[in-house]
Design a binder for these strands. Structure first.
Lengths: 207, 207
DNA sequence: GTGCGAATCTACACGCATGTAGTAATTGAC
DNA sequence: GTCAATTACTACATGCGTGTAGATTCGCAC
């Protein structure tokens, strides 16, 4: 209170070239998102979080939609990069059980390393609008496609397994693990999840 | 247009006792939800969908929050009833593989029979606010608990399986199947999903 | 058929977020 | 130091949803 100029003009925020300002706005938007969900992700809230007035946001992005689009681009890029890094190069054979474990491990590590990027992707942010859902789904489609490829090239041609459904299942499973890891890390640490996962895979041979 | 009284008073909607009106409002809300998502689930939209004016909604429920609460009560009850009907009575032993298949089959049938109830539960409606998320989660907690019980009483005491994580996994898996069934029924009919599921279970013995 | 209570409607005041037009301050170049 | 371009701010108009107070109509009981 003591710092306010009683009825004067607002103090100007530090100036930035447009590109930097855009990045700063996206960072602020991500913070708002994590704190309050999509329902409160408004131009006003982003401007306030950035420490700037609304016209700045309009000048930088033109509206909430282009801004969200840009935020999704950035997030999707980061998440997809991390996920696709775990997929072996096309056609290279791997030992399937071993790869399933390593890929899950790698993804859980990525999630732990950058939770703020992954929480939106895993559907842990309230109020996701259609645009967001579509983005996430498109990334998952890509991911499932790669998983299916790995399965096909490593299953032996006599396998009767429905590769597409199995790919859906594996991705859904790892997503659930990632959610558990982020939401209840004390009860479900990575090691526990991976051990259980290995146990389930091992059933294929035991019993 | 031809039916409008040029500048007259609005035609009164058919009157209803309070209880009926409440049910009608919930039905309308569910339709709005399925069509437009939570982001458009407003008092105005519900009133319009019902064919009455907003004060009627306020008289019946007092606001959007109590109304949503009531809608969730109804939906949760229906979904939980259907799901818990598939759980064998406590302590009764079952043949595990057989039960896993039958329970999945039963749940997918329930989903197909009443998709409008299940779409919100499966997270297929855009813009779900925290209240909704919490409700769904509490139902899932209950369900996972029962699944874990079944696993425990039928796994043989020498099993090293992490029952809680496996319960999480199974529920997540069936949820994914249900989503596929609702979103892309042509590509993923119930029979295909169940066959793939059986195939995955069968891996436990084959290979 | 006539009341009278219940159910519905109209009308107003408000809050909050959106966009935009015009103004003012900052900052780098000269 | 001065100027001009860039960046940020103020101020206004608007749309849409929320609540609520008070008037109006419906329809059952008698």
């Amino acid at each position: 209170m003591a710092n306010d100029q009683p009825a004067g003009r607002r103090r100007y925020a530090a100036r930035m070239p447009l590109d930097e300002r855009r990045e700063a706005l996206l960072d602020a938007a991500l913070r708002v998102l994590g704190r309050d969900g999509y329902g409160h992700l408004t131009i006003s809230a982003i401007a306030a979080e950035t420490g700037v007035t609304r016209p700045v946001v309009y000048d930088a992005y033109g509206g909430i939609d282009p801004l969200l689009h840009a935020l999704l681009d950035r997030t999707q890029q980061r998440a997809a990069d991390a996920a696709l890094a775990l997929i072996p190069a096309g056609g290279v054979p791997v030992e399937l059980d071993r790869w399933l474990l390593e890929a899950a491990d790698g993804l859980l590590q990525a999630v732990q390393a950058d939770p703020e990027t992954w929480r939106p992707v895993l559907g842990l942010i309230d109020g996701a609008p259609p645009l967001v859902r579509e983005r996430i789904e498109s990334t998952l489609v890509l991911l499932r496609g790669f998983v299916a490829d790995v399965l096909r090239t490593n299953l032996g041609p006599e396998s009767q397994l429905d590769v597409e459904v199995v790919a859906h299942s594996l991705v859904a499973l790892v997503q659930e693990f990632a959610r558990l890891l982020l939401v209840r890390p004390d009860e479900y640490p990575k090691e526990r999840l991976l051990a259980a996962y290995a146990g389930m895979l091992a059933l294929r041979r035991a019993t």
